[in-house]
Design a protein around this nucleic acid. Sequence first.
DNA 1: GCAATAAAGTAAAACGTTTTACTAATCCAA
DNA 2: TTGGATTAGTAAAACGTTTTACTTTATTGC
Lengths: 334, 334
Amino acid sequence: MKSLSIKDIAVKANVSITTVSFIINGKAKEKSISEAVIEKVEKIIAESGYKPNQIARSLRTGNSNIIGLIIEDISNSFFSRIARLIEDKAYKRGYKIIYSSTENSIDKAKELINMFKSRKVDAYIISPIMGIEEDIRMLLDDGNPVIFFDRKLPDINTSYVGADHFNASYQAIQNFIDQGKRNIALVTTDINVEQIVERYDGYKKALEDNGIKYDESLVLKIHFNQEESETSDQMKKLFEQKSIDAVLFATNYLAISGLKVLKQIKKKIGDDFAVIAYDDHEAFELHTPGISALQQPLEEIAENVIKLILKQLSSKTKLDNQQVIIPAKLIIRD
Amino acid sequence: MKSLSIKDIAVKANVSITTVSFIINGKAKEKSISEAVIEKVEKIIAESGYKPNQIARSLRTGNSNIIGLIIEDISNSFFSRIARLIEDKAYKRGYKIIYSSTENSIDKAKELINMFKSRKVDAYIISPIMGIEEDIRMLLDDGNPVIFFDRKLPDINTSYVGADHFNASYQAIQNFIDQGKRNIALVTTDINVEQIVERYDGYKKALEDNGIKYDESLVLKIHFNQEESETSDQMKKLFEQKSIDAVLFATNYLAISGLKVLKQIKKKIGDDFAVIAYDDHEAFELHTPGISALQQPLEEIAENVIKLILKQLSSKTKLDNQQVIIPAKLIIRD
DNA sequence: GCAATAAAGTAAAACGTTTTACTAATCCAA
DNA sequence: TTGGATTAGTAAAACGTTTTACTTTATTGC
């Protein structure tokens, strides 16, 4: 019933707790424990199936071998894929990941940070939202490794890994213009995070550089968390403007909603009306016609995130912050 | 730098640690601490931003307010959606969820169970795979609440929540037959879990009940974890059989792969060739034509899982195991 | 043959809580 | 006025580890 403790092992082996601890932690040699004792204890451990209580271990050592991952929404395929990759890579290096979704709520984000803090995670990987600057700053002040990905916060100075949102968006619009499009819409969200702003800026700049006047009525900002039906209505209104000949969706879930609307109002995607989505999604490849997408290099983002965080974890001193900006790829379909 | 402990608070307030602990845990009244002291201590706690160390707390109390969730793959939309729902519901009841993917590896699954065990999670929600029976049995023997969802293991007797896979699959095939289909294929996986077997059984039974001979060459079992290209080749071969007039995909990722193949070989879905997918996916609604799907009631599954697990957690005695089977819904599209 | 060094191991403190069993003072009833 | 009950609070053990500082015995060099 009750699980074994190091003491039980010590008693069985007729040695001290200390000795068992040294053996478990591979310090036996260094602490000059004899081969015979090592073998005996290891045998007992293996036979009894004893596993050290990580809680006690964490309490004593102050670290947990756990990295906390905070994202917007695990059911969004961009995040779930990144999470899977990060989990995988961390796992191979002996770290566990625990993750949780903020659902874009500042309160929930703060609570998550507190939860992770009180559970003494060794490091934080965060896709941040506005409004948690203070909390992040406290983490940093306490000497916790914190790395942002996908988004960052203007006022916080820490390492960051993300795609080049500005240029990605610029590239998409340029592509539209090269196809002769002039009335290019942008469907984005109103959440106030840098990466969304950058996508917006890329859109504006590309228009400007091509001598096209920015037209506010072609930009639709959807509230996060608003009813699906309201979103549909707003998009419908936008798409029904006769003149519009192209649209860039700033996130994959907006694109999914948008495509549903287009299907519903029977507006065909093709020579007269082009679409590009930010973030790829299985549905885009499958769609007829295929939907072009700005694909973020998930693998590379995950790899960089892990590399940076582990480098920080294994270093005694605070390393310099790094900004890793990875180009996104425009996948043209059909 | 160093975070505050209950002792710091006690010193500041000039009371004992015990008193602070009682106040934190809402036992002040019961332990007859005066209103004045309560207020003083609470003020200090609020001002200093002290948060109890959950690790120490867990060590002492033996529980963690954490529920471990073990699934196949968080990047699969079925699981990520369920995870999100479970997380949400647990969160509202004061529990945190930590989840991790097995990627269908028995070793990884065992490691995860061990990790959760050594972190003293209060309960386990598992979508199990064959080969971990012994580990599960140990958890149960130790008195841990364990609940299976989506799948179960034949040899293990514990609570379970899942869709009625047999009837779902039966219903799909019956639908094909009612449309006049006779040569109905099944694309499934070779992983040996009950829910996959049930879907297969439902397929066979429906054929049988309608007097259609079961034809082995129409059933394709894909290895889990095999190369995408091999999967494609196998499917291509299947779909190019002239006679075949309908196909049921046993999982959503198989359906996605299958739809890609169909697109590639330009085999049209329509009156001559019908498709149904198990598990819904955004891509299916968007697809032209829309892809019919067997939709599992995610919300209901999540709700039942949480309800059962919390009931067990709040009960002193071991409750009877429950099997909650929820009908799946056939969504006909286009 | 004696001091210094190495080998083999251990006792006990510490991590930050919760909880049990206790004390001291006050109150109230008879 | 006394002694049981209540009020207000505390000391210390316990949870299961890691780690520091220590002891005891054996070995080596000279």
